[in-house]
Amino acid sequence: MDNAIKLHYNVDGEDFTLAGTTSATVKKYLKTLGLPPDVIRRTAIAMYEAEINMVIHADGGVIDVEITPEKIHIVLKDRGPGIPDVEKAMQEGYSTASNEIRELGFGAGMGLPNIKTCSDEMKVDTVIGEGTTMDLVINIK
């Protein structure tokens, strides 16, 4: 792990218009590393969905990305309300987003399912009232 690249970002939960900034920055960075397009795309989608979730549901959080020659490891941590039923939240079409958010084209209940599809490993640790940590791995090889 000596040659791991580590990136750290704060996600602002108050400004919905900034959501996606971190994913865009990481995507650009992965492109400069010359990683396979499929890996870049999956990372961008998974990160964007998770970032949007942080903004919609948890008032922001922090994202750590570690890139090694083998994989991209993303840890997203928020201090939001927690997810009462992770299994339900993983179902396509299930969402607790407000109508206001839905009008912007979100809240289709596809966020977590999309993250799962795009990542090779996905772990969700959530505590009600304390927050949620999502651990994602995208394999490069």
Binding site: T17, G20, T21, A24, R41, A44, I45, G105, F106
Partner: peptide, 15 residues
């Protein structure tokens, strides 16, 4: 799309 908010640019650019 008929969406007009700024997230359109984020999604279009990421995709």
């Amino acid at each position: 799309t008929i969406q007009t908010n700024i997230n359109v640019t984020a999604v279009a650019s990421l995709a």
